[in-house]
Amino acid sequence: MSNAARANGAGKHPAQYLALAIGIIYVLVGLAGFLVTGFDGFAEPEGDLLLGFEVNPLHNIVHLLIGAAGLALWSTLDRARTYGWLLAVGYGATFVYGLFVANSDDQANFLALNQADNILHLVSALAGLAIALWPARDRSTANTRR
C-alpha cells in the first residue's frame, strides 16, 4: 500500500475507526459539559444534567482526557487496542464504582455519577473490549475469500 493511501486512511482497521469515533464523541461531550456546568462545583457530588447524564467540571475533564486519548491512539491498530484496554479497564472500574455512589450526595461521588452514567460507562467498557479484541484482518487470505 502506498504512503498516499495510508495517509488517506486506506487500510485502517474497523477497531481504529471505532476508537476515533469514541474519542471524538467524548471530546464533544466534555466540551458540551462545560457549557452546562461552567467551572463551578469542580468535584461536587451534585452535578448538572447534560442529556440526562449528571456531570461536574471534573467529570468534563475526564471526558476530555478520554476523548483526547482516542484521538491520539486511533492511528495504528496496536495503539487503538491500547485505547480499547484503557476504556475497558477504566470504564469497567468506573461502572463498578458508580454502582455504589451513583445518585448519592456523598463526597465519594466526586464525579457526580447517576444511573445513566453507569449505563454509558458499561457500554464504553464493552466498546473498549470490542476495540481491544477485534480480530485483525489476515491480508494474505483476504483477496482469496472474495
Rank of each mutant, 00 (worst) to 15 (best):
G84V: 04
I131C: 01
Q16A: 09
Y83W: 11
Y26T: 06
A80K: 05
D78H: 15
G47Y: 04
D106A: 13
E46N: 15
L51G: 05
A127Y: 06
G67H: 02
A19D: 01
G30C: 03
N56A: 10
G84Q: 05
P135S: 03
V27P: 02
L49K: 06
Y91G: 03
A88C: 12
R6Q: 14
E44Y: 15
L71Y: 05
G98W: 11
L20D: 02
T76Y: 13
A80F: 06
A136V: 05
N109L: 11
A32Q: 04
L64Q: 10
A130D: 04
K12S: 13
S104F: 11
R81Y: 10
L71H: 03
A69Q: 00
L73N: 01
V27S: 00
P14W: 10
V62P: 01
H59A: 09
A69P: 06
V89N: 04
H121P: 02
I24C: 08
D48G: 15
I25P: 00
L20E: 00
H59E: 06
A21F: 06
E54W: 08
I61R: 07
A112K: 05
A93K: 03
A108M: 12
H121G: 00
A68M: 14
L35N: 07
D40K: 15
L129W: 03
A5V: 10
G41D: 12
I119V: 15
F42D: 13
Y97A: 00
F95R: 00
A125G: 07
F110E: 02
G92N: 05
V96Q: 02
F110I: 10
P14D: 11
A88P: 08
L133P: 00
V89L: 13
Y97G: 00
D117A: 04
H13L: 12
I24P: 02
Q107M: 12
A72L: 15
L87I: 07
A68E: 09
G47P: 10
N56R: 08
A69F: 05
V89R: 00
I25C: 09
K12G: 09
D105G: 15
L71K: 07
A125E: 00
